[in-house]
Design a protein around this nucleic acid. Structure first.
Length: 717
RNA sequence: GGGCGGUUAGCUCAGUUGGUAGAGCACCGGCUUUACACGCCGGCUGUCACAGGUUCGAGUCCUGUACCGCCCACCA
């Protein structure tokens, strides 16, 4: 009990105030409590962080900044309630709780929403128009606007979205310090993202390279391994025959015959006796007459298809591995928009035994999407007799960008990467420095780190995000010297290189020979949100605050973004600060609908949270949320919210009774009283232990059980 | 193919070192006119997914299987 005495608190209890007369209402009600307490907490600064306290007395929380352009759903209410329980517990323990809120407004979801909401498209080639005003209703056809204008609209809309979120969080009763709110697109966040990036660059931990990259053909941007998902898609095996020097054929199976013009080799397993005689020989591609070598590589699976595959630049990530390890040339046909580009057969790199025939065949394909080209080339191959047997439909997993609509392609492009592959063991060690709630979530982190197969691609060919603070000199011939980087001094950050000018240059030199060119890309949304611990704790901005709050205590988040946000945050703190970003990672589960499916917008089963809060009371909904332990997926259950609402009413009524009948200052002598107090002491000890262990569910169960006994037995007696 | 969770009353879930199966909701029956009908008291409900094993004793530990969910993988 001693832990809960009022004197131990840094400031007034949120629940008692000398400013409010302690009049016990005639008939207590839940209605209106949210608004009343929101107002009072705001007025009294109840949850303001006390930055005079030393690190040991601080509990710092790295709250997830919700994507404001996304929809609010009960999943948010669920997990943010869990964090709030921890925050309130730590506050009761006497800690100064550092509990800021952020808004994630970067990225594709915002761009998509702005495009639809205003009827605009971003055209980076246009100049900024200060007089531009968005139309009242979405323009049709969409108006093209410059990147700065587009970003203005993104900010305008996200500000509105943030108000809706803030109202919900306040109504829900989250004990956040609203004076420290940040937005991931605002200048302070941009500055930290850019500064941290420049530090990576200085240390050689970020680099730029032109290489095959996973690419979304609709968004026309590179994407990272962490943003991939597999989807089951119909496909079809096509068996193609390649000509051998002796006039016979070798047959290969492929699901992507449209990449035949991009074929650079055939490959089979080195131990595959069927193909031993072929290794080192050359074969000729059908239709295009390209001579390609037959090579051996252990990744080729003798069991799959005919056991020999064509390597194309690039059909999938295995092609990239083969291409790299077997040192093959590039013959790229897929363009960034997903169509087959123009090719001059017979030109260097496109040598053919029969260039005229190759050109004739290819002209049927040029300009088509991969899907249409596939059907067309199947026709052409059938006509030429090079398609063996019938096409065999199958269902297989195809890689998609998680927000994308068409399968990913692999396109060679210039991208920024952060070194991760070399850090794998160090990251796993960092993961072991942290405590995970529940513990088994650590395994997911380790599995992900072990499964990394490349460095982290952090550049995106998009508009609404943090730009790379980089320019390049333009050579006398007008080409861009990507190997020389012009970087701004720290004091100028944040910069937008498409608006600002590198030191020593004038705007008139932009894009001119002898002048400069801006890096056109923005950072991946995770590249910016992964420095949220540094951003909120005042890294390189407020040394005293940083010393008092970093490394932080808690990162609460959902398990589906362990591979993205959590992983990236651990990486950034490891590289930048040589430490873990937080001591504890609390991983919340999902809210499942009654059919045990994840509640999601696409399934149309999302319930608006504010409506629930109004119907059952914030306390009723929080009660339901608190029953879902760390990591545990929890069913959406209004029955439990009703129980929570009843419990809240009971609490008010019992309080009314006790407050109306309390005896002042009398020593406790009755056995009945002493027994109750003894049980209470045990409850407090157990609950404190449970909450220290992030087991708020157990604390709730025990406390609720005690409370009912208190009412039904002790109060009745 | 690899990994991680889960499977306990009609529903939602507890069950901390192995010691006679629990709560809430729902259902049924009573009660209650001043804290609370948003209440109180009582009752009904289980091959603890399945099969082996360890043990005096297994919901709990071990092995395997099935199903559900999630994550991952170099599925031509």
């Amino acid at each position: 009990m001693r832990d809960f005495r009022w004197a131990a608190r840094p400031r007034q209890s949120p629940y008692m105030s000398t400013h409010t007369p302690s009049v016990v209402p005639e008939s207590p009600a839940l209605e209106g409590l949210e608004a009343r307490f929101t107002e009072r907490w705001q007025r009294e600064g109840t949850y303001l962080f006390d930055r005079t306290r030393p690190r040991a007395e601080v509990y710092a929380i790295d709250t997830p900044p919700p994507t404001v352009s996304g929809s609010l759903h009960v999943g948010h209410v669920f997990s943010y309630t869990h964090t709030d329980i921890v925050a309130r517990f730590q506050r009761m323990r006497g800690k100064a709780v550092f509990y800021p809120m952020g808004w994630d407004d970067n990225g594709l979801p915002t761009e998509r929403r702005v495009q639809n909401y205003y009827g605009v498209r971003c055209d980076p080639s246009l100049a900024y128009d200060p007089a531009f005003v968005a139309p009242e209703t979405p323009a049709k056809p969409p108006i093209s606007v410059s990147r700065p204008n587009f970003i203005e609209l993104c900010i305008k809309l996200t500000v509105e979205d943030e108000k809706v979120f803030e109202h919900l969080w306040k109504y829900l009763g989250l004990s956040i310090d609203w004076s420290m709110t940040y937005a991931t697109i605002a200048p302070p966040a941009q500055r930290v993202s850019q500064l941290a990036f420049l530090r990576l660059l200085e240390r050689g931990e970020a680099y730029q390279v032109e290489a095959p990259t996973l690419w979304d053909v609709d968004f026309k941007t590179a994407v990272a391994q962490a943003e991939l998902e597999d989807r089951e898609m119909p496909g079809a095996y096509h068996r193609l025959r390649f000509g051998r020097p002796d006039g016979t054929f070798v047959e290969i199976d492929t699901t992507r015959p449209e990449l035949l013009p991009a074929c650079v080799a055939l490959v089979a397993h080195p131990d595959d006796v069927r193909y031993l005689p072929l290794f080192g020989q050359q074969v000729v591609t059908p239709l295009f007459g390209v001579r390609v070598p037959v090579l051996a590589h252990a990744l080729a699976d003798p069991e799959k298809g005919s056991g020999i595959a064509m390597i194309c630049t690039f059909g999938d990530t295995t092609d990239v591995t083969w291409w790299r390890e077997l040192r093959l040339p590039v013959r790229a046909v897929i363009r960034p928009n997903g169509t087959l580009g123009a090719v001059t057969w017979g030109a260097p790199g496109w040598e053919s035994a029969d260039a005229a025939r190759a050109q004739a065949a290819y002209d049927h394909l040029a300009g088509l999407s991969a899907k249409k080209a596939q059907a067309k080339i199947a026709e052409l191959l059938a006509e030429s007799g090079d398609l063996v047997g019938a096409v065999r439909p199958i269902t297989h997993n195809v890689k998609f960008f998680e927000k994308g609509d068409r399968p990913l392609e692999i396109i060679t492009s210039r991208q920024w990467f952060i070194k991760t592959l070399d850090e794998r063991e160090a990251l796993i060690a960092r993961g072991r420095e942290m405590q995970w709630h529940p513990e088994y979530m650590r395994t997911r982190f380790e599995n992900w780190v072990h499964g990394l197969n490349g460095d982290w691609c952090v550049s995106r060919q998009r508009f609404f995000g943090v730009p790379f603070p980089i320019w390049y000199p333009v050579r006398a011939d007008g080409s861009i010297d990507h190997d020389t980087r012009l970087v701004p001094s720290d004091g100028r950050l944040p910069v937008d290189p498409s608006i600002h000018v590198p030191e020593g240059y004038t705007e008139g030199q932009r894009g001119r020979p002898g002048g400069f060119a801006a890096d056109p890309d923005v950072m991946d949304t995770w590249a910016t949100s992964s420095v949220s611990p540094q951003l909120v704790t005042g890294w390189e901005r407020d040394p005293a605050l940083f010393a008092a709050t970093f490394p932080m205590d808690l990162r609460p988040q959902a398990h589906d973004i362990i591979r993205t946000w959590l992983f990236a945050s651990v990486l950034r703190a490891h590289l930048e600060n040589g430490s873990i970003p937080w001591q504890h990672a609390a991983i919340s589960g999902w809210v499942l609908d009654p059919d045990r499916k994840k509640m999601s917008k696409s399934k149309g089963n999302v319930v608006t949270p504010l409506g629930l809060l109004e119907e059952y009371g914030s306390d009723g909904v929080r009660y339901w949320a608190a029953r879902g332990g760390p990591g545990v997926d929890t069913a959406f259950d209004v029955g439990q919210m009703k129980v929570g609402r009843r419990l809240s009413m009971k609490l008010l009524n019992a309080s009314k009774f006790v407050l109306a009948s309390r005896a002042a200052g009398a020593p406790v002598s009755e056995v009945l009283d002493r027994g109750m107090l003894s049980h209470l002491a045990t409850l407090v000890a157990d609950s404190t232990r449970a909450l220290d262990d992030y087991d708020y569910t157990r604390a709730l169960m025990n406390t609720e059980s005690f409370f009912w006994e208190f009412c039904d037995d002790y109060v009745e007696l």
